[in-house]
Design a protein around this nucleic acid. Structure first.
Lengths: 120, 120
DNA sequence: GTCTATGTTCGACTCTATTCGAACTAGTTC
DNA sequence: GAACTAGTTCGAATAGAGTCGAACATAGAC
């Protein structure tokens, strides 16, 4: 008997979109928690500064960590609703959900854009 | 031989101020981390909404947790630079560092003020 | 088919956070 | 002095977050 359930971790076959919270489901505490890690803060800042609003594959961000670590952080960001991920062939293309975050938490992304890392 | 060092956790004898990071030392990731806990977010929001800018003792916030837990959360908030604590007699009087936070992270406290808890 | 590239999943480990009770300290009041 | 109060400190238990290697999956090029 085949399992007719849909894998809740899988990408939408039509759009390639991975599951994410809707705009109304965004939780401030979860977003803050996702952004409180320096590595993730750096990912989001790099996107905001250099990605020109385009989708960027994980590899575009030069993250000097093992692949499993990177996957973990992308997942945290996606589940908090900070980034949207779309599967295209082998790549997972990412973009920060600027419109959703600006609508729900105005000014927050500006703080991330202006952030200066501690050891800089 | 007496220890002439000053206890770095003690209140300033003159002002009663407990040690805290200066405005320039505030770190976005640390502030976000401090605010990512629902209990602490509630503390800060309660102050912003109801404290009228005045100092408030810990007991003024009706926090339904053991005393040791409350002490812990106040310490996290103070060390992140979110609140200032002043020892006055038996009480520890608290205030959110609105001017410092607005200067370094404009808009952040507005998000806290407008936050709606999950189970509300 | 093989090879390569991009990323996931799993399990384990470590480190940090959170929670709390019990004992304690220090003002205040009597 | 004793009693009360506001809060700390310590130690321990538990839960959670970050890190990583090894094995795996899948798409594309050849």
């Amino acid at each position: 008997m085949p399992d007719l359930q849909v894998d809740p971790t899988a990408a939408d076959p039509a759009t390639g979109l991975l599951p994410e919270p809707g705009r109304a489901e965004l939780r401030l505490e979860q977003v803050l928690s996702a952004l409180s890690d320096p590595l993730r803060l750096d990912i989001v800042q790099t996107y905001l500064r250099d990605a020109d609003g385009e989708e960027r594959a994980c590899g575009w961000f030069k993250i000097d960590r093992p692949k499993s670590t990177r996957t973990h952080h992308w997942k945290v960001l996606r589940e908090a609703g900070v980034v949207r991920q779309r599967q295209v062939g082998l790549e997972r293309r990412n973009r920060v959900r600027e419109a959703d975050l600006d609508a729900r938490f105005p000014g927050l992304l500006d703080l991330v854009r202006d952030w200066k890392p501690a050891d800089a």
